[in-house]
């Protein structure tokens, strides 16, 4: 049975900005489900609708068996939440932070003590229970934040960018905890990320989200297979933008329609060529480039990555989008951050 289900879930800000635009998906118990997309794609907005922090403009969502609009209190009792910015109180100890949430989730004192002990062990913070959070490192705070969302043994936990800003070692640790939660405790994990690797290594299924819409959903393998073959990337010797664009245009024209080419996609002044068999296609590509007099600096073949999947379904790379494309939601968030400083 699915623990999260949405139908046409939509959030429109200020009557015009479609932050989340009619999304449908389901998440099963014990499953790790990732929303992969750039900043401003609508990931956080989706989480906030699912954990009742904001109301959807239209559509519906059911979480842990209850409608998020009609029965928000029932939903809150059954879900945990760790936001992108950790919501721990640094003027209190770890135990005090956890205990407060235990009370908010209506656990009795004895149960709270048990859970505090279990959770500090689970997230590897035992020994730090009575230290002030202000003395915790960033990774420790993140783990405490996660523990606070778990005190009431929720059926679902929402993790918004759980490892953003963490060092690689801490990130791997956190992945282990998240995996343990889903696989040994049966918690449904809904996480958002803009790290390909995180989605790839952690998630059972991935939804690619861009500009408020889900472009495709599947397991990492299925998504990569949907590209159908290998990716051959051609890089020009030119450094200048116009020359690179020109290269991409000419190379694309030369290769399109060739029987061994499935699809071509320009990205960042390079050309990604999707082919059924990369090793067999490279000589052919070289020959065509040579006969057209197009100079190629490097040619690389790779198994498709999630990056390629993202490119195929959105027409952009997730990295190229960072920084260049500023959406409304992103601008709002940046403004909020500045204000909060």
């Amino acid at each position: 049975m699915s623990v999260i289900g949405t139908r046409g879930l939509t959030k429109i800000y200020n009557g015009e900005v479609r932050a989340v635009d009619g999304i449908d998906f389901e998440v099963e118990a014990g499953e790790i489900f990732a929303f992969l997309g750039p900043n401003g794609a609508g990931k956080t907005t989706t989480i906030k609708m699912l954990n009742t922090l904001i109301l959807p403009t239209s559509g519906s969502a059911t979480v842990a068996g209850f409608d998020v609009v009609k029965h928000p209190a029932e939903v809150r009792r059954r879900v945990g939440y760790a936001a992108q910015d950790v919501g721990v109180d640094e003027r209190a100890t770890g135990r005090e932070n956890l205990t407060l949430y235990g009370h908010f989730y209506r656990l009795d004192n004895r149960r709270i003590r048990e859970r505090v002990k279990e959770l500090f062990e689970l997230v590897g913070l035992n020994g730090y229970e009575d230290k002030m959070v202000s003395s915790y490192s960033g990774g420790m705070r993140k783990r405490l934040d996660l523990a606070m969302g778990l005190i009431h043994q929720p059926q679902v936990i929402f993790l918004d960018e759980p490892t953003t800003g963490l060092d690689p070692q801490t990130r791997v640790h956190l992945w282990d905890y998240i995996n343990k939660l889903a696989k040994t405790m049966g918690v449904a994990v809904f996480l958002t990320t803009h790290y390909m690797e995180e989605a790839d290594r952690l998630a059972d299924r991935i939804a690619i989200i861009d500009l408020g819409k889900i472009r495709t959903i599947g397991t990492s393998d299925a998504l990569k297979k949907s590209i159908g073959g290998d990716v051959v990337t051609l890089t020009p010797p030119a450094e200048k933008d116009e020359e690179r664009q020109d290269f991409v245009k000419r190379a694309e024209a030369a290769l399109s329609g060739k029987p061994f080419v499935t699809e071509t996609k320009p990205s960042d002044g390079q050309l990604a060529v999707y082919v059924k068999d990369g090793a067999a296609a490279i000589p052919g590509i070289m020959q065509i480039m040579g006969s057209q007099g197009i100079e190629v600096k490097t040619i690389a073949m790779s198994r498709p990555s999630l990056d390629d999947v993202f490119l195929k379904y959105t027409g952009r790379t997730i990295r190229a989008q960072e920084g260049t494309q500023t959406t409304f939601v992103q601008m709002r968030r940046q403004a909020n951050r500045r204000r909060n400083r």
Binding site: R77, V79, Y81, A83, V86, R106, N340
Partner: peptide, 14 residues
């Protein structure tokens, strides 16, 4: 609110 504590609290049944 600025520290993100508020939205985390509001996600509980408090």
């Amino acid at each position: 609110i600025d520290a993100g504590i508020m939205s985390k609290m509001l996600a509980t049944p408090v």
